[in-house]
Design a protein around this nucleic acid. Structure first.
Lengths: 220, 220
DNA sequence: GAGTTACGCTACGGGCCGTAGCGAAAGCCC
DNA sequence: GGGCTTTCGCTACGGCCCGTAGCGTAACTC
């Protein structure tokens, strides 16, 4: 788990080669960071993305509004960090077969998207990210890359078991991993948030079969 | 193409069985409707979702702000209708094979998502929809159902060609269509908006092969 | 203690929201 | 034409939220 860091305080340059001792002055309150992120998640559950305001979060966290703006540039950045922690619980258990692994991660990812915090926040920040390159990068490092790691891990296991062939070309391997990631994550997100229908065990099973064996396997 | 209708004006009940003649009073300006939707799309291109305001749209459309609120309840509903028209151009040409049909629709759908209007609007309204049942229904009828029709159409063609088996059970057929729809639409949306990487011909080809033949086909 | 930085608090200009109220305009039906 | 109905443009308004500035105080380092 990689901690997501809020906006860094302005520090003097270290480019002159002089050895700096640790940061001087009053340090930032770690409790405040935690309380703010917690308050943000609570506000997301109660109010949703559109009605969430910075002032409200500050009040919930028992913190001055100015303290929020000292650490996060705005609502989007704050919410990304607040939600990112929830994705840390995503893990890929080794169940012994590629089919079981895929089904399991699909269900876990869906369970994460069922939570009202992630439900209302994920699409909203992605929408904002379409117009903000920096925000896209933040989303990528805080959320997307963690998920993509699961794909790489699952493929390595399947290859070790002999369920998947080893790719000869590293570039091809990377492209395939990206493709599989978009297919799995995209299908689960689209099912839960756009089609607004539940991802249950039956759906996960049928999706996994489709992914592994293709369209022709969908007869029954 | 089904026209998306703005908020209906308050009419007296027709439940008493009496024959009503047409609506009385001054009719709504169809030109205003058109100008408003056009102005909304233009504003989406220039400003994006978050900075788009109702007042700005009204000014662009040369219409009073009150006129907007007489027809749409808010920003989300307005944007859904404004973007819905763009999805009408989605069609499924008969290219003679399932592979070609899928590749083509993937590329067309991706081209639609490349446009800044849809890019910034689609995820935003979906995010709002997670907290608004009525808005979800509006998105479904205005956008999602039209796309889903393409899946049904493509499957029927493939079955007629003998490329896909006919499902015995209608319920199974419906579930399969929903699954395929979420996989295709989800993958394209996730690739373009979350991973923020282009859907080009090569990606469409590899995705289609994966969809038709499953993971094992991804060696090269 | 001196220096530095974070904090809480208050106050503010500015923007946008969504609505009310008005007179005028544009259609129907007699 | 005269009435009736509904929409239109316009203005004005209270309210909420934004994001920042300014101040005095608290916490930590050297």
């Amino acid at each position: 788990m990689v901690a997501v860091m809020p906006k860094q305080p302005p520090r003097p340059d270290v480019t002159d080669g002089a050895v700096r001792t640790g940061p001087r002055g009053r340090p930032r309150s770690a409790e405040a960071d935690c309380a703010i992120l917690e308050a943000t998640r609570a506000a997301l559950v109660e109010l949703g993305w559109s009605k969430l305001t910075m002032g409200d979060v500050a009040t919930r966290a028992k913190v001055a509004k100015t303290t929020l703006y000292r650490r996060w540039a705005g609502k989007s950045e704050l919410v990304v960090d607040a939600v990112a922690h929830l994705f840390d619980e995503l893990e890929l258990p080794d169940l012994g077969s590629l089919t079981a692994d895929v089904e399991c991660v699909v269900l876990r990812f869906a369970a994460l998207l069922e939570r009202p915090e992630t439900r209302t926040a994920l699409m909203a920040v992605v929408a904002e990210g379409t117009r903000d390159e920096a925000l896209r990068g933040r989303i990528r490092s805080a959320i997307v890359d963690r998920q993509k790691g699961l794909v790489l891990q699952g493929r390595a296991r399947a290859q070790a078991r002999g369920e998947l062939p080893y790719e000869d070309d590293p570039a091809t391997a990377a492209r395939n991993a990206d493709l599989i990631f978009d297919v799995i994550a995209g299908a689960v997100v689209h099912r839960t948030l756009v089609s607004a229908e539940p991802v249950d065990a039956a759906w996960a099973r049928r999706f996994t079969r489709l992914l592994l064996s293709g369209l022709a396997s969908l007869r029954n």
